[in-house]
């Protein structure tokens, strides 16, 4: 099988893997980037959220072979002013508890704010409802997204 070619966090990435292998495991175990987490393996929790060509996807349920040629961005590779605003707001409000869901939360929040600079509570709820947080940091996630939106206005 020829290797699958993609871009990972801005760098060319050639993966020698079963095309059915989920993107999540290819990134975690082959590329060695462990910031994206395994929470359910069934597109139920969002802990594995990455950006594929700018769109948030559940990497646990995305076969690596199905996205050959795509640009994959993980929590380790996000950059730019939206990402910075989101991460700063997360730290400022101390959103995290155990932290395990937070890479995924941040990837979803960055995608939301890239699309919609001024989300309402309802926009946040619908964009973020695929990301479970068992520690229930939801109150602060909402507040931090508003905070990041405010910071981006300036």
């Amino acid at each position: 099988m020829p290797p699958i070619k993609l871009t990972l966090n801005g760098k060319p990435w050639s993966v020698d893997a079963d095309p059915d292998m989920p993107l999540l495991w290819a990134v975690r175990e082959i590329a060695g980037k462990t910031g994206s987490k395994f929470g359910c393996g069934a597109a139920q929790c969002g802990a594995c959220t990455m950006h594929v060509d700018g769109q948030p996807v559940r990497a646990c349920s995305t076969p690596i072979g199905s996205i050959a040629g795509s640009k994959v961005t993980t929590i380790e590779g996000i950059e730019g002013k939206v990402a910075r605003a989101v991460q700063d707001a997360w730290v400022k409000l101390d959103v995290v508890q155990c932290g395990y869901c937070q890479s995924g939360q941040i990837m979803s929040a960055v995608a939301l704010l890239t699309d919609n600079a001024k989300p309402t509570d309802q926009d946040i709820d619908s964009a973020m409802s695929g990301n479970l947080c068992r520690c229930s940091t939801y109150v602060r996630i909402r507040a931090a997204i508003h905070e990041a939106a405010k910071a981006l206005e300036i």
Partner: peptide, 14 residues
């Protein structure tokens, strides 16, 4: 632990 857990750098057993 906020910074580590906001950048994907925190280490869990997995």
């Amino acid at each position: 632990d906020s910074a580590e857990k906001t950048t994907g750098k925190a280490t869990f057993a997995i």
